[in-house]
Simulated assay, not measured.
Amino acid sequence: MKKGKNYFYQTYSDDFINSGNQQYQLPKNYRWLHHGKGWFGLRVLITGIADVIAWLYFHFITRSKVIAGEKIKKYQGKGCFVYGNHTQTQGDALIAFHLLPHRFVNIIATPANLGNFIVGRLLPFAGILPIPTNFHQLNKFTQAVNKQAQSGHAVFIYPEAHVWPFYTKIRPFSRSAFHYPVDTGLASFCITTTYHTRRWSSKPQIVIYVDGPFYPRDGLTKRQQQLDLSRQIAACMKKRAKLNDMEYIHYEKVK
């Protein structure tokens, strides 16, 4: 495997992408669900803009390939959850609009994304669902995530939590990110971003694999179903990650 520059880490919780808004916290009265014609109109407008940006980004900037994207498209309007490895700052958000253009999607993200005074205020109209700042907000957040999926939206989740640019392995993730499909009974998919050598460029070719649907097995408790589903998806993503043949950034643990 071809290697590039080095990044050093101590734990899988280390951040390599830091913005000036990392400490941003949601207001105590933050609302995840909104109603009204004005909100709906802005949602349509911002989603349409995001669709165009995503099309330009994947066709002209990264020239990425998507393999089996039609698997998710078959579930348009039914609602589902999509899990992915977190290795692209912009691409991981835009892939939702690229896979499902002209549809409402939702993306679970850190509150830091809303910290920008201008762009941050527009992100909720694009379907961003920021993670709660405190425990008291968790119930409303969970209700919003489930309601959006049950309304027919695809909800994108990055259970590795932190962006590690161009990382070629799958980091551990908790079963807690998988209680949404267990609670709702909806299908889950995974998208695995992989990196490959280009003949005429030092930057990798990005290939994104779509797999699924996945469902938790019957006859298990809810906690067991969460663990079972997380293992199914992790195994699939690890299998896809073996297809990487270029390590644009080498990650090494500090001993």
Rank of each mutant, 00 (worst) to 15 (best):
F97S: 10
P111A: 15
T89Q: 01
Q88K: 00
H86R: 12
T89E: 09
S151N: 09
Q76V: 05
K71D: 01
G91Y: 07
N146I: 09
A149K: 01
G127E: 01
H86L: 08
F156W: 12
G84W: 00
I95L: 11
Q150C: 10
N139Y: 15
L94Q: 03
A144K: 00
N106K: 10
V145P: 02
L99A: 08
A93D: 00
P101E: 07
A149Q: 02
L99Q: 08
I108Q: 05
A161W: 03
P132Y: 06
Q76E: 08
C80I: 01
K74W: 00
Q90E: 07
Q150G: 03
V82Y: 00
P111T: 11
R103E: 05
T133F: 11
G115T: 12
I108D: 05
D92R: 11
T89S: 04
R121Y: 00
Q148L: 07
L123H: 03
L99S: 05
I108M: 14
Q143W: 05
L129Y: 05
G77P: 04
H153E: 13
E160A: 08
G91C: 11
I72P: 00
K147T: 05
Y83K: 00
N106Y: 11
H98W: 11
R103K: 08
P132G: 13
P130S: 10
F117N: 08
T142W: 02
Q148C: 06
K147S: 07
I118C: 04
F135A: 15
Q148S: 06
Q90Y: 13
Y83F: 10
Q90M: 13
N139V: 05
Q90A: 08
T87H: 05
N134A: 12
I107K: 06
F135W: 12
N139K: 13
F125T: 05
Q90W: 07
I108L: 04
T87Y: 03
R121H: 03
A96K: 03
Y75M: 00
P130R: 13
Q137G: 12
